[in-house]
């Protein structure tokens, strides 16, 4: 047995691999849901990245999940873009959750242009968050959105049907909303961390 070697020198010389591929920067985009923030590696939404939200149907609490974030962002400098929502956003309802509707732009686009419009908004750098409901989005399209979100330093939210869960996705975060037996959110993928084994209850207050 030879001399004692200081561990720090070997770490400095990068002779030891530390098993964590990429450090996760602590983001400053809390979701507004304490339990979810605590479980996510970035302490909230992955900043400047794509988050995918998978739904069994429309109107199961997907906006409820996002509204605290939108309320916070709508009081900052940059705008929130809503690209081809499935229904009209109800002004009174959004305002009840604290969203400043003067900062929310709604973009009506044909299905063929949804991805283009979403990418333009993300890439522009003047949007804080972009919400989109693309129907035909494949792996390549989502990757483009991920890159655009990174370029424009924006939060990208893509709402898709639950059946897409089985296909791979480049999104940094994948959440699945479940309605039965109760409204719950599963974290299906989170970059830089391990998916928590339990779902989080999605409280359904009306205000």
């Amino acid at each position: 047995m030879g001399a004692v070697i200081a561990l720090s020198s070997m770490l400095d010389a990068r002779q030891i691999w530390r098993g964590r591929a990429m450090p996760v920067p602590a983001g400053d985009q809390p979701t507004g849901w304490a339990a979810l923030d605590a479980a996510l590696p970035a302490g909230g939404w992955p900043d400047a990245a794509l988050s995918e939200i998978l739904l069994p149907a429309d109107g199961v609490g997907e906006l409820r999940l996002l509204l605290p974030t939108l309320a916070r962002l709508s009081h900052a400098a940059r705008s929130v873009m809503v690209v081809t929502p499935p229904y009209s956003p109800c002004v009174a309802g959004w305002q009840q959750h604290g969203v400043d509707m003067r900062k929310v732009d709604i973009v009506a686009a044909k299905q063929a242009d949804v991805l283009w419009a979403t990418e333009q908004c993300l890439r522009s750098g003047s949007c804080a968050a972009v919400l989109a409901w693309p129907r035909q989005a494949d792996d390549r399209a989502l990757r483009r959105l991920q890159v655009a979100a990174d370029t424009g330093r924006a939060l990208a939210f893509v709402f898709r049907d639950r059946r897409h869960l089985s296909s791979a996705s480049p999104a940094a975060l994948r959440l699945e909303i479940e309605t039965s037996p109760s409204a719950r959110v599963w974290v299906r993928k989170c970059r830089g961390g391990v998916e928590p084994p339990q779902p989080f209850p999605l409280a359904r207050s009306l205000h």
Partner: peptide
Amino acid sequence: LGDRAVYRLGS
């Protein structure tokens, strides 16, 4: 997308 494609809603 057309002239009316981008809008804001108010109550």
